[in-house]
Write a protein that binds this DNA or RNA. Structure first.
Lengths: 206, 206, 206, 206
DNA sequence: GGATAAGCGAGACGGTACGTCTCGTCTTTTG
DNA sequence: CAAAAGACGAGACGTACCGTCTCGCTTATCC
């Protein structure tokens, strides 16, 4: 795994490691404090007490540094709920997401969205694949409880519920507070109710 | 109204108007061709045959120009459907959206999302408010046909259906083709079916 | 002569004259207050309550306006002395010059020196010709008193005595206070003393 | 040692030195060719084959560059004479000055006079102090020959003789050819003749 | 344990874009 | 119709940031 190789290479405490850690830490803090607009290599270097050139040598571009900082420090802020019912799990998830966006961490998320070079796109794609994978247990439990059809794609449901948050933040520019989380969950969940009439949509995603 | 006064002052065809139109046209074309990254005032000025200073005088910043160009030229690219059923209208809408994002116009839309200064945010908010207002007739007709409950907020439904497109484009970086438009419409629409069991959610939005 | 034509055109009291006077007045004040560096047409126009274009129409360039303002308002600040002896006259003259350069009016003088377009050069040349002509009576009186040889050129003497002031202000950048006015007058005047040994230099200037 | 040789090589042929030299050379040439009016950073950069930004980084303003170029390239163009008599030395000096002003180098001198920011003033003050200091040997020799009183300030005499040249160039706008160099020297020198009657003025300058 | 490779600090430079300032001209509007 | 008002063309200035390069030195690694 990447981390082991990294550990071996870095010999915790060496100068390189010190530089690397200081830069990533300063980068992430700067990202949260000032947002994407003011995220400059010069400022990161100054905060980290490191020369700009060292950053260019390692990361090459501000965006690569930004993505690296994001990856290193952005642990999944929203825990995976297990409340006993799917409806409640999904509502908890939605509320967690909204609260993250109200915290300063939200800056970092938005910042990353603005980065659209190839590397960042790849990183983000993989992040969300992992994220959805880690949410799958919610649906495994729901299926076991008979709350969710085994042949439906949970990712579609998740994206339907999660997407409006980003839509309102990024596209339509509306406050998140207005969004009726529970209503949305209920409306959408109806489409997954175990009804004899609705057997139409099978899993279409691999 | 402001527009009338402006029209009166500008005597369509005057030098100012010529400059303004040439700039906006060039700006929008550049935006579509090259995207946000390569959208520079110098290039717009060169294309429009206008001096850079004139652009700075009028718009001040590249972003302001970008927003103005977008407003002036981005007419609603997705027509408002009227196919006879709500389900069919919504699917048509979704397919229209997907096709727009596959066209070069999609560049312009993404470009605007990356602009997050105060003015741009205001413009985008207002654009989407109008957009949703103009889609309301779809639901008026559906209500008349008994396909949609009169006390539900159609905007919530619309955002649920539209948002995943942007989520996949901007956040999770997935192709739009994978998205099951019809399935999503059917799932969500179930939550609005005139069922005796589900009368819970009243309009909560003003 | 230009002045006559101007008088005819100006219609004392008309709008044009009002504009002209306001502009010249503001221009001269600005010149004295802020010096040549900050002398801009925009500022003059603002102070005079006149549109910039009006100034451009009349004067064409900032320098022309500056020269005109200088001409109109810079009356000879140093009176022509008549103290009874040539030595005393020249010392008085020198002290007058030094005191002018210590007053805000000195700004205006320096400002004009920095203007070196053709028109300004011509104006300045003529100004100094007139100035020297007006100082000639000092020497007429001195000749009558036997203090100055009738065949010497007084302008040479005047320039020798006046020039160091400008040299120190413009070239060697030294304070005027250090300059020994009386000593210089005495030293130079020795060369014009009616001595049997020195009859060499006749007038060589036309 | 290797390091010393290396240092030496680097200072002479390093990139920075190359840039610096090219810029100063181009700047001085431009100054002489085109005068102060057309002295722009862009043109200097183009001539030196250097990027404009590099000039801004080093010198900040056009004036600072101009002054630096002047300092670096304006060696004393007028040699210090030693002809055997003070009178002859001073006449030679005056003729040298006049001839410099007739050469293209005169452009550079006038250009510098127009620059009156703080730095330029300081540089010019120091330049003339040095210049006068370097002319002092003329008077040491004259004193030894009994041609100049040991207690008089030679700088006063020098300024009296040099100043008219600048006065006519800058202030009264008259040709230099008209100026009677020898007459002026003779007149002024009379004031320094070792006469028993004239013991008035002692050195007042430190 | 000494040679050697890798990385860092320091400083400049090339390059792109931005935004400002002033001058001078041109067009539009108005009295 | 002439002057006022307003916008534009032109060009220089100065700034910010990005990314590259060279050099000298320190640290880590390897034989």
């Amino acid at each position: 795994m990447a981390k082991a190789a990294y550990q071996k290479r870095r010999r915790v405490g060496g100068r390189s490691a010190r530089v690397r850690d200081a830069v990533l830490k300063s980068a992430f803090e700067l990202l949260i404090e000032q947002g994407h607009e003011r995220f400059t290599i010069a400022e990161v270097a100054a905060r980290a007490g490191v020369h700009e050139t060292s950053i260019y040598r390692r990361w090459g571009t501000p965006n690569a540094l930004l993505v690296d900082a994001w990856l290193g420090y952005f642990d999944d802020a929203i825990p995976i709920p297990d409340t006993g019912t799917l409806r409640s799990d999904l509502i908890t998830l939605g509320e967690g997401g909204a609260s993250v966006h109200r915290s300063p961490l939200g800056q970092a998320i938005l910042a990353l969205i603005l980065v659209r070079d190839e590397h960042a796109l790849k990183v983000k794609h993989e992040y969300w694949q992992r994220r959805f994978e880690r949410l799958r247990p919610i649906f495994d439990r729901a299926i076991a409880r008979g709350e969710f059809p085994p042949d439906a794609d949970p990712i579609v449901l998740l994206q339907i519920l999660i997407a409006p948050r980003f839509f309102r933040l990024l596209v339509s520019i509306e406050p998140l507070d207005d969004w009726p989380i529970a209503e949305a969950v209920d409306r959408v969940l109806s489409g997954y109710a175990p009804s004899p009439k609705r057997t139409a949509h099978r899993r279409r995603r691999q």
